[in-house]
Amino acid sequence: MGSALDHLGRFARPAQQILNVLAAGPRVPSAIRREVDSRCGVDLGPGTLFGTIARLERHALIEVVAAPAAPRAYRLTVLGAETLEAQLAAVARKAPASVPAANRSPAR
C-alpha cells in the first residue's frame, strides 16, 4: 500500500521531512530548511522547499501562522498531524521486518 503522501510524486519525501520538522512546532521556511538539513542531511533547495510547502498548504496539511509579511511561519494542521501519524505508523509497520535484517550480526 502506498503512503499518504505518494500522490505528491517527487515532493513526497521532502513533504514528509517538512511535516516531521513542523511536528515540533511552527517554523519559518529558513528554519525548516536548516532542520531538515541537520536531521536528514538533505539540503532542500528553495525551489523544492517552496514547491513542497505550496503542495502541503494546498492539501491543507500545513497552514500559515497569521503573519502579515515574510518570513511567515508554517504549522501543521489537524489533517497534517494525522497524515504524519499515519505515515510514521506505516514506517513502523515495515520496521520489524527490516530491523532484524539490518541488525543481523556478521557471519562467523
Binding site: V28, P29, S30, R33, D43, G45, P46, G47, T48, L49, F50, G51, I53, A54, A69, A70, P71, R72
Partner: peptide, 26 residues
C-alpha cells in the same frame, strides 16, 4: 504568494549554484 519568502530565505542563506538550478526547476 511566495516571492517575499524566497527573498527572505535567500537573504539568510545565500544561494549556491545548486540553489539557482533548483529555483529554475521550481
Amino acid at each position: 504568494r511566495h516571492g517575499d519568502e524566497v527573498a527572505a530565505l535567500l537573504e539568510e542563506h545565500p544561494a549556491s549554484t545548486l540553489d539557482l538550478l533548483d529555483l529554475i526547476r521550481g
